[in-house]
Design a protein around this nucleic acid. Structure first.
Lengths: 114, 114
DNA sequence: ATATTATATAACTATATAGTGATATAGTTG
DNA sequence: CAACTATATCACTATATAGTTATATAATAT
């Protein structure tokens, strides 16, 4: 059996950790349709300034967003579109689970009819 | 602009949170090539019994693994193969970043030659 | 019934981090 | 330069959870 090196797993888990916070996903969703500066992101997400600034730093360090100062403002944009593929996969999974459950309910219904 | 409901984002971030721990990824990797009982998982991962038991509970509750008692042992298996697609995507991303960096290094080299 | 083994849980400690208010820094304007 | 605005950082609190030891539970065998 082949064992994946711990360092590789740590890299992957660190990446998922960045995506494992609702506030950061909110920020990423707000950036999905184009770059925004911090003030705009605050308006979109309702997060407080200091908080969103910390999240943006984390996202930037992970290479998921890019930072671009423009005058006194700082614009952020998605640097790593695969995050949306990841979310898509997870959502599909949730949908599948929902379908399974509704199918199970139907089966139960049918049993009850007998 | 459409705002994704907070509850949906929370579901997604919760899912990523389950995958954001190195120990749990170790367990999942150990299960990749077939079901194993807890004792076997302990041997594969080196994690302690109580610890792995907690992680297995978290993975089970998330619907990522399935639990099946057999006699005194309990076997676990992957219930949700998309986790490997997710890891694959993340790994591809890391590879791409590595390639980009090595390309940048090459470009620097060429500049230095001038 | 008792002993043994496999797994789960409880109680605890240590650590990481999200959120917050206050402050610092840097670009812009008058 | 001073005043203003946008963003980043600091210091702090509160909370969540990974890991650990000890204990409980459940299946099996003697």
């Amino acid at each position: 059996m082949l064992t994946i090196p711990a360092s590789a797993l740590a890299q992957i888990s660190d990446y998922f950790k960045v995506l494992s916070e609702q506030s950061r996903l909110q920020v990423l969703c707000a950036l999905k349709d184009g770059e925004k500066n911090v003030t705009e992101l605050i308006a979109h997400t309702g997060l407080k300034q200091a908080n969103i600034s910390k999240h943006l730093k984390i996202l930037t360090q992970a290479g998921i967003v890019e930072r671009q100062p423009e005058g006194v403002a700082v614009y952020y944009r998605i640097a790593d579109p695969i995050i949306f593929d990841l979310c898509e996969l997870v959502c599909q999974r949730f949908e599948m689970q929902l379908e399974e459950r509704s199918q199970q309910l139907k089966n139960l219904e049918q049993l009850r009819q007998l």
